[in-house]
Amino acid sequence: MKKLMNLRPSRGTAIFLGLLPFLLIVILYVFASDARLAENPNDKLLPSMHSFVEAIDRMAFTESKRSGENLFVQDTVSSLQRLGLGVFISATLALLMGIPLGLIPYVRSGLSPFVAAFSMVPPMAILPILFIVFGMGEMAKVALIVIGVTPLMVRDLQQRVSEIPAEQLIKAQTLGGSTWTIVVRVILPQMLPRLFDAVRLTLGTAWIFLISAEAIAATEGLGYRIFLVRRYLSMDVILPYVAWITFLAFLFDYLLKKFTYKMFPWYTAGKENK
């Protein structure tokens, strides 16, 4: 008998083991829900599977009686727009700031302490300021994501730039590169896949800020809906929404990873060797 640490599951077993916790939690839920509903059929805390199906059908597959729109689609679209725009702006800023910060000593001396201090400001604490400055519109919500996520990405990218071996930068200079051409031909191409990695890592944080901003001031959006129906204890809507958000987060992470693998074969090849 081998030691436990040397035993490896077969592929089939690995898939089964991976699914097991999900399965267990569903079974556990169904039992708990049945038990509560047997005692009080009007219980709202753990709705039955049947009421989930009804809620999903009502939110996602029928038009709203009041506005004639599909609420679920509308919520998803507006949330994703905010998230996408926020993350896109953050990533662009990260490139524009992270590369000079990592490469140019003068920029680092001038801006590094500021960026370090700024990244310590809790973004939620300045949300009221954003609402005052940008009003209740889309701007404030996008700005919260940008303010929350950009410092993380900038510092990550700055770190990655400074990790480029000095040998490479010297070599590039002996090949006739100027500061600018070295940025364009050596640093930027090496930073792009790392930027996608940074986006993947900060996406979770971006979701937090998105949902927080929507919870406080919005007229549609996934976060808005969850906090709206909370007033009616509508667990049958909240739980599917949470599952959907989780799925979206997982999907984006997966797609970004696949995209990075496809676009930058040299990057992932190097990683596997490590």
Partner: peptide
């Protein structure tokens, strides 16, 4: 160690020296 550019293939690595010299803006 570390004096080749991991994001360029072998040919591009050698071409880089020529490109950096001739193209001052885009390299």
């Amino acid at each position: 160690r570390y004096s080749v550019f991991s994001h360029l293939n072998v040919l591009e690595n050698v071409m880089l020296g020529i490109e950096l010299e001739k193209s001052k803006f885009l390299g």
